[in-house]
């Protein structure tokens, strides 16, 4: 485990706070967000762990994990947080940082034509919003 505070890592954490409008340091690891998260089973790191690692400046590990992409923005974590942290907004900020580097998580061109034919617009549009730069 590599803990780094200061320098580039701190800047990225500050960026996460700026984009999300949340104070990450408020998190005291009660774990409500992870307990209520419907997608936690599929995440490399559960949401509360992401919060802790951001506090510690472990941004590399956070960006390597799939957590922000698996988040379905259901907002359950945000309404559950006793410290009123909008955890979903933190996930959004992490996604935005990657997307703003013009990197994509979902490649629309690679979805099979048969599936596109069947999928509802709402799913395609929302995916494009969350996963393409």
């Amino acid at each position: 485990m590599r803990v780094k505070v200061g320098g580039e890592e701190e800047e990225i954490v500050a960026k996460v706070e700026e984009i999300s409008g949340q104070n990450i340091m408020l998190c005291y690891q009660c774990g409500q967000c992870s307990a209520s998260c419907p997608m936690a089973d599929y995440m490399d790191l559960i949401p509360s762990r992401v919060m802790k690692m951001l506090q510690l400046g472990m941004v590399d590990d956070v960006f390597k994990a799939n957590t922000m992409w698996i988040c379905a923005t259901c907002l359950k974590c945000s309404v559950m947080c006793p410290k009123d942290i909008d955890v979903a907004a933190v996930m959004e900020a992490l996604r935005q940082i990657v997307l703003r580097r013009n990197e994509e998580y979902l490649s629309l061109g690679k979805i099979s034509k048969d599936r596109i034919e069947e999928l509802p617009q709402i799913a395609l549009i929302a995916s494009a919003r969350k996963m393409t730069p």
Binding site: K113, E117, L119, S127
Partner: peptide, 15 residues
């Protein structure tokens, strides 16, 4: 022709 024909050929439409 189906409702999603144009998206099928041009998926970037949904962006």
């Amino acid at each position: 022709v189906s409702p999603n024909t144009l998206i099928k050929f041009y998926p970037e439409l949904v962006r």
